[in-house]
Protein backbone atom coordinates (compact mmCIF):
# COMPACT_ATOMS: atom_id res chain seq x y z
CA UNK A 1 0.00 0.00 0.00
CA UNK A 2 1.48 3.34 -1.00
CA UNK A 3 2.05 6.07 1.58
CA UNK A 4 -0.74 8.17 0.06
CA UNK A 5 -3.34 5.42 0.39
CA UNK A 6 -2.34 4.87 4.01
CA UNK A 7 -2.78 8.57 4.78
CA UNK A 8 -6.09 8.67 2.90
CA UNK A 9 -7.34 5.71 4.88
CA UNK A 10 -6.76 7.72 8.04
CA UNK A 11 -9.05 10.53 7.02
CA UNK A 12 -11.48 9.81 4.22
CA UNK A 13 -12.81 13.34 3.68
CA UNK A 14 -10.30 16.14 4.15
CA UNK A 15 -7.00 14.57 3.24
CA UNK A 16 -7.91 13.47 -0.30
CA UNK A 17 -8.15 17.16 -1.15
CA UNK A 18 -4.60 17.67 0.07
CA UNK A 19 -3.34 14.48 -1.54
CA UNK A 20 -4.78 15.06 -5.01
CA UNK A 21 -1.33 14.69 -6.55
CA UNK A 22 -0.75 11.29 -4.99
CA UNK A 23 -2.80 9.17 -7.33
CA UNK A 24 -3.86 9.18 -10.94
CA UNK A 25 -1.99 8.45 -14.16
CA UNK A 26 0.58 11.22 -13.73
CA UNK A 27 1.81 10.74 -10.19
CA UNK A 28 5.38 10.00 -9.19
CA UNK A 29 3.88 8.59 -5.99
CA UNK A 30 2.21 5.74 -7.89
CA UNK A 31 5.20 4.00 -9.48
CA UNK A 32 4.55 1.71 -12.44
CA UNK A 33 8.14 0.67 -13.06
CA UNK A 34 11.54 0.03 -11.50
CA UNK A 35 12.91 3.52 -12.06
CA UNK A 36 9.91 5.30 -10.57
CA UNK A 37 9.93 2.84 -7.65
CA UNK A 38 13.53 3.81 -6.88
CA UNK A 39 12.67 7.50 -6.95
CA UNK A 40 9.59 6.85 -4.81
CA UNK A 41 11.71 5.05 -2.21
CA UNK A 42 14.20 7.92 -2.26
CA UNK A 43 11.34 10.37 -1.71
CA UNK A 44 9.84 8.39 1.17
CA UNK A 45 13.21 8.02 2.93
CA UNK A 46 13.92 11.75 2.51
CA UNK A 47 10.44 12.63 3.75
CA UNK A 48 10.66 10.39 6.80
CA UNK A 49 14.20 11.60 7.50
CA UNK A 50 13.10 15.23 7.25
CA UNK A 51 10.22 14.59 9.66
CA UNK A 52 12.54 12.83 12.15
CA UNK A 53 15.07 15.67 11.94
CA UNK A 54 12.35 18.28 12.38
CA UNK A 55 10.93 16.51 15.42
CA UNK A 56 14.38 15.96 16.93
CA UNK A 57 15.44 19.56 16.41
CA UNK A 58 12.25 21.04 17.84
CA UNK A 59 12.22 18.44 20.64
CA UNK A 60 15.73 19.43 21.67
CA UNK A 61 14.83 23.10 21.38
CA UNK A 62 11.83 22.56 23.64
CA UNK A 63 13.85 20.45 26.09
CA UNK A 64 16.65 22.96 26.54
CA UNK A 65 14.40 26.03 26.72
CA UNK A 66 11.53 24.69 28.84
CA UNK A 67 12.55 21.49 30.63
CA UNK A 68 16.25 21.63 31.34
CA UNK A 69 17.49 25.21 31.40
CA UNK A 70 20.92 24.56 32.84
CA UNK A 71 23.97 26.35 31.53
CA UNK A 72 26.45 24.28 29.56
CA UNK A 73 30.18 24.65 29.79
CA UNK A 74 31.88 26.12 26.71
CA UNK A 75 33.50 22.75 25.98
CA UNK A 76 30.18 20.91 26.15
CA UNK A 77 28.44 23.51 23.99
CA UNK A 78 31.21 23.28 21.40
CA UNK A 79 30.85 19.49 21.31
CA UNK A 80 27.12 19.81 20.58
CA UNK A 81 27.76 22.37 17.83
CA UNK A 82 30.48 20.30 16.19
CA UNK A 83 28.62 17.00 16.55
CA UNK A 84 25.09 18.08 15.63
CA UNK A 85 25.94 21.10 13.51
CA UNK A 86 28.93 19.89 11.50
CA UNK A 87 29.46 16.14 11.63
CA UNK A 88 25.82 14.98 11.58
CA UNK A 89 24.71 17.08 8.55
CA UNK A 90 27.93 16.26 6.69
CA UNK A 91 27.38 12.54 7.18
CA UNK A 92 23.63 12.66 6.46
CA UNK A 93 23.95 14.78 3.30
CA UNK A 94 26.98 12.74 2.19
CA UNK A 95 25.06 9.48 2.65
CA UNK A 96 22.04 10.78 0.74
CA UNK A 97 24.33 12.05 -2.03
CA UNK A 98 26.07 8.67 -2.24
CA UNK A 99 22.74 6.82 -2.35
CA UNK A 100 21.31 9.17 -5.00
CA UNK A 101 24.45 8.86 -7.12
CA UNK A 102 24.43 5.07 -6.82
CA UNK A 103 20.89 5.05 -8.28
CA UNK A 104 21.78 7.16 -11.32
CA UNK A 105 23.68 4.50 -13.33
CA UNK A 106 20.73 2.07 -13.09
CA UNK A 107 18.45 4.78 -14.52
CA UNK A 108 20.79 4.91 -17.54
CA UNK A 109 21.27 1.13 -17.80
CA UNK A 110 21.36 -0.21 -21.39
CA UNK A 111 18.02 -1.20 -22.88
CA UNK A 112 16.96 -4.76 -23.72
CA UNK A 113 16.63 -4.12 -27.46
CA UNK A 114 13.73 -1.84 -28.32
CA UNK A 115 14.77 1.74 -28.99
CA UNK A 116 12.21 4.55 -29.16
CA UNK A 117 13.35 7.85 -30.64
CA UNK A 118 11.26 10.79 -29.50
CA UNK A 119 11.61 14.28 -30.95
CA UNK A 120 10.11 17.28 -29.18
CA UNK A 121 8.25 19.39 -31.74
CA UNK A 122 6.07 22.53 -31.33
CA UNK A 123 4.09 21.31 -29.30
CA UNK A 124 3.82 17.62 -29.91
CA UNK A 125 5.94 14.45 -29.87
CA UNK A 126 7.33 12.65 -32.91
CA UNK A 127 7.74 8.99 -31.92
CA UNK A 128 9.75 6.36 -33.83
CA UNK A 129 9.93 2.71 -32.77
CA UNK A 130 13.13 0.89 -33.70
CA UNK A 131 12.76 -2.82 -32.83
CA UNK A 132 16.05 -4.78 -32.73
CA UNK A 133 17.48 -5.16 -36.23
CA UNK A 134 15.08 -2.71 -37.86
CA UNK A 135 16.29 -0.78 -40.93
CA UNK A 136 13.56 1.84 -40.76
CA UNK A 137 11.45 3.12 -37.91
CA UNK A 138 7.75 2.60 -37.29
CA UNK A 139 6.55 6.18 -37.07
CA UNK A 140 3.87 7.37 -34.70
CA UNK A 141 3.15 10.45 -32.63
CA UNK A 142 1.87 11.74 -29.31
CA UNK A 143 1.70 8.36 -27.64
CA UNK A 144 4.48 6.11 -26.37
CA UNK A 145 3.88 2.42 -25.78
CA UNK A 146 6.18 0.15 -23.82
CA UNK A 147 6.40 -3.60 -23.34
CA UNK A 148 6.13 -4.44 -19.63
CA UNK A 149 8.97 -6.25 -17.91
CA UNK A 150 11.87 -5.08 -20.07
CA UNK A 151 14.06 -2.02 -20.28
CA UNK A 152 13.36 0.29 -23.20
CA UNK A 153 15.84 2.85 -24.43
CA UNK A 154 14.49 6.31 -25.24
CA UNK A 155 16.72 8.41 -27.48
CA UNK A 156 15.58 11.99 -27.22
CA UNK A 157 16.11 15.15 -29.21
CA UNK A 158 14.19 18.30 -30.12
CA UNK A 159 13.60 20.32 -33.26
CA UNK A 160 13.60 23.98 -32.22
CA UNK A 161 13.15 24.48 -28.50
CA UNK A 162 14.40 22.59 -25.47
CA UNK A 163 11.75 20.23 -24.09
CA UNK A 164 11.84 17.60 -21.37
CA UNK A 165 10.19 14.20 -21.43
CA UNK A 166 8.66 13.09 -18.17
CA UNK A 167 6.37 10.18 -17.35
CA UNK A 168 6.25 10.58 -13.56
CA UNK A 169 4.83 7.10 -12.91
CA UNK A 170 7.58 5.43 -14.93
CA UNK A 171 10.74 7.34 -14.06
CA UNK A 172 12.70 10.57 -13.97
CA UNK A 173 12.69 13.32 -16.55
CA UNK A 174 15.22 13.96 -19.32
CA UNK A 175 15.88 17.10 -21.36
CA UNK A 176 15.39 17.06 -25.13
CA UNK A 177 17.88 19.44 -26.73
CA UNK A 178 18.01 20.52 -30.41
CA UNK A 179 21.11 19.16 -32.12
CA UNK A 180 21.91 16.72 -29.32
CA UNK A 181 20.73 13.27 -28.37
CA UNK A 182 20.04 12.41 -24.75
CA UNK A 183 19.26 8.92 -23.49
CA UNK A 184 16.77 7.75 -20.90
CA UNK A 185 15.95 4.13 -20.21
CA UNK A 186 12.75 3.00 -18.52
CA UNK A 187 11.74 -0.36 -17.11
CA UNK A 188 7.94 -0.36 -16.72
CA UNK A 189 6.43 -3.29 -14.81
CA UNK A 190 2.73 -2.60 -14.32
CA UNK A 191 0.52 -2.63 -17.39
CA UNK A 192 -1.72 0.38 -17.72
CA UNK A 193 -2.08 3.96 -18.85
CA UNK A 194 0.26 6.67 -17.67
CA UNK A 195 0.39 10.30 -18.64
CA UNK A 196 3.52 12.10 -19.73
CA UNK A 197 4.14 15.81 -19.92
CA UNK A 198 6.75 18.22 -21.23
CA UNK A 199 8.60 19.28 -18.09
CA UNK A 200 10.64 22.17 -19.50
CA UNK A 201 8.91 25.43 -20.36
CA UNK A 202 9.03 25.53 -24.15
CA UNK A 203 6.74 28.34 -25.27
CA UNK A 204 3.11 29.33 -25.73
CA UNK A 205 1.60 25.83 -25.63
CA UNK A 206 4.00 24.18 -23.20
CA UNK A 207 1.18 23.30 -20.81
CA UNK A 208 -0.63 21.54 -23.67
CA UNK A 209 2.27 19.32 -24.65
CA UNK A 210 1.38 16.03 -23.03
CA UNK A 211 0.99 12.45 -24.19
CA UNK A 212 -0.49 9.13 -23.23
CA UNK A 213 1.84 6.32 -22.36
CA UNK A 214 0.68 2.72 -22.46
CA UNK A 215 2.47 -0.20 -20.83
CA UNK A 216 1.39 -3.50 -22.44
CA UNK A 217 2.08 -7.19 -21.95
CA UNK A 218 5.03 -8.12 -24.24
CA UNK A 219 2.85 -10.23 -26.61
CA UNK A 220 0.21 -7.51 -26.84
CA UNK A 221 2.93 -4.98 -27.51
CA UNK A 222 4.39 -7.07 -30.35
CA UNK A 223 0.93 -7.45 -31.90
CA UNK A 224 0.26 -3.73 -31.51
CA UNK A 225 3.65 -2.82 -33.06
CA UNK A 226 2.96 -5.11 -36.05
CA UNK A 227 -0.38 -3.35 -36.52
CA UNK A 228 1.25 0.04 -36.14
CA UNK A 229 3.77 -0.84 -38.86
CA UNK A 230 0.98 -1.71 -41.32
CA UNK A 231 -0.41 0.88 -43.75
CA UNK A 232 -3.63 2.72 -42.99
CA UNK A 233 -6.99 1.12 -43.65
CA UNK A 234 -8.90 2.36 -46.70
CA UNK A 235 -12.00 4.52 -46.21
CA UNK A 236 -15.11 2.35 -46.24
CA UNK A 237 -18.20 4.56 -46.16
CA UNK A 238 -19.07 7.35 -48.61
CA UNK A 239 -18.62 9.86 -45.80
CA UNK A 240 -15.10 8.58 -45.09
CA UNK A 241 -14.26 8.69 -48.81
CA UNK A 242 -15.50 12.28 -48.94
CA UNK A 243 -13.38 13.02 -45.88
CA UNK A 244 -10.31 11.64 -47.64
CA UNK A 245 -11.07 13.85 -50.65
CA UNK A 246 -11.27 16.91 -48.39
CA UNK A 247 -8.01 15.84 -46.73
CA UNK A 248 -6.43 15.78 -50.22
CA UNK A 249 -8.06 18.99 -51.51
CA UNK A 250 -7.15 21.03 -48.45
CA UNK A 251 -3.52 20.00 -48.75
CA UNK A 252 -3.41 18.21 -45.38
CA UNK A 253 -1.08 15.60 -46.89
CA UNK A 254 1.63 18.22 -47.35
CA UNK A 255 2.17 18.18 -43.59
CA UNK A 256 0.74 14.84 -42.43
CA UNK A 257 1.70 11.36 -43.53
CA UNK A 258 -0.82 8.53 -43.80
CA UNK A 259 1.10 5.44 -44.85
CA UNK A 260 -0.51 3.50 -47.71
CA UNK A 261 -1.79 6.71 -49.31
CA UNK A 262 -0.25 9.50 -51.37
CA UNK A 263 -0.04 11.66 -48.21
CA UNK A 264 3.60 11.78 -47.16
CA UNK A 265 4.11 15.09 -45.35
CA UNK A 266 6.44 15.06 -42.39
CA UNK A 267 5.91 18.50 -40.85
CA UNK A 268 3.10 17.41 -38.56
CA UNK A 269 2.24 14.20 -36.72
CA UNK A 270 1.90 10.93 -38.65
CA UNK A 271 -1.81 10.09 -38.79
CA UNK A 272 -1.64 6.52 -40.12
CA UNK A 273 -3.23 5.01 -37.00
CA UNK A 274 -4.58 8.16 -35.39
CA UNK A 275 -7.82 6.52 -34.25
CA UNK A 276 -5.98 3.85 -32.26
CA UNK A 277 -4.39 6.50 -30.07
CA UNK A 278 -5.88 7.57 -26.78
CA UNK A 279 -5.59 11.31 -27.26
CA UNK A 280 -5.60 14.05 -29.86
CA UNK A 281 -3.35 17.12 -30.26
CA UNK A 282 -0.71 15.83 -27.84
CA UNK A 283 -2.69 14.66 -24.86
CA UNK A 284 -5.29 17.42 -24.61
CA UNK A 285 -8.39 16.08 -26.46
CA UNK A 286 -10.17 12.83 -27.29
CA UNK A 287 -9.98 11.09 -30.68
CA UNK A 288 -13.71 11.38 -31.34
CA UNK A 289 -15.91 13.23 -33.81
CA UNK A 290 -16.64 16.46 -31.90
CA UNK A 291 -13.08 16.98 -30.70
CA UNK A 292 -11.67 16.30 -34.18
CA UNK A 293 -14.04 18.85 -35.75
CA UNK A 294 -13.29 21.42 -33.06
CA UNK A 295 -9.55 20.89 -33.35
CA UNK A 296 -9.42 21.18 -37.15
CA UNK A 297 -11.49 24.38 -37.18
CA UNK A 298 -9.93 26.11 -34.16
CA UNK A 299 -6.36 24.85 -33.78
CA UNK A 300 -4.81 28.12 -32.62
CA UNK A 301 -7.64 28.99 -30.27
CA UNK A 302 -7.13 25.67 -28.55
CA UNK A 303 -3.34 25.56 -28.78
CA UNK A 304 -1.71 28.99 -29.17
CA UNK A 305 0.98 29.40 -31.86
CA UNK A 306 0.65 25.82 -33.11
CA UNK A 307 1.90 25.41 -36.69
CA UNK A 308 -1.35 23.93 -38.05
CA UNK A 309 -3.63 26.73 -39.30
CA UNK A 310 -7.30 26.68 -38.29
CA UNK A 311 -9.48 25.35 -41.13
CA UNK A 312 -12.40 27.55 -40.15
CA UNK A 313 -13.67 27.95 -43.72
CA UNK A 314 -14.82 24.33 -43.79
CA UNK A 315 -18.52 24.00 -43.04
CA UNK A 316 -19.91 21.55 -40.49
CA UNK A 317 -20.67 18.88 -43.08
CA UNK A 318 -17.11 19.01 -44.46
CA UNK A 319 -15.59 18.95 -40.99
CA UNK A 320 -17.75 15.95 -40.05
CA UNK A 321 -16.64 14.07 -43.18
CA UNK A 322 -12.99 14.87 -42.50
CA UNK A 323 -13.39 13.74 -38.89
CA UNK A 324 -15.11 10.55 -40.04
CA UNK A 325 -12.13 9.75 -42.30
CA UNK A 326 -9.65 10.40 -39.48
CA UNK A 327 -11.73 8.27 -37.10
CA UNK A 328 -11.44 5.38 -39.55
CA UNK A 329 -7.63 5.39 -39.31
CA UNK A 330 -7.38 2.69 -36.68
Amino acid sequence: MSICRRIRALHPVALPLLLGGCDGPQSALRPGGQDAAQLYLLFVVMLVGAVVLWLALNGLFFYFTRVNQQQFSLRHGNRIIIGAGVILPTVVVGSLLAWGLSIMPSQRAPGDGLVIRVTGEEWWWRVEYWPPGADAPIVSANEIRFPAGSRTELRLTARTYIHSLWIPSLGGKMDMIPGRETVLTLHPDLEGFYRGQCAEFCGASHAMMAFESVVMAPDDFDAWLAHEAAPASRPQTPMQVRGQDIFRDEGCGACHAIRGTEFTGSVGPDLTHLASRHSLAAGIMEVERDDLMRWIAHTRDIKPQVAMPPYDWLDAEELAALAAYLESLE
Partner: peptide, 10 residues
Amino acid sequence: MPALFIGSCL
Protein backbone atom coordinates in the same frame (compact mmCIF):
# COMPACT_ATOMS: atom_id res chain seq x y z
CA MET B 1 31.67 11.85 -5.43
CA PRO B 2 29.83 11.62 -8.80
CA ALA B 3 33.09 10.40 -10.39
CA LEU B 4 33.12 7.59 -7.83
CA PHE B 5 29.66 6.28 -8.77
CA ILE B 6 29.06 7.23 -12.38
CA GLY B 7 31.00 5.30 -14.99
CA SER B 8 29.68 6.75 -18.23
CA CYS B 9 28.92 10.04 -19.93
CA LEU B 10 25.20 9.27 -20.18
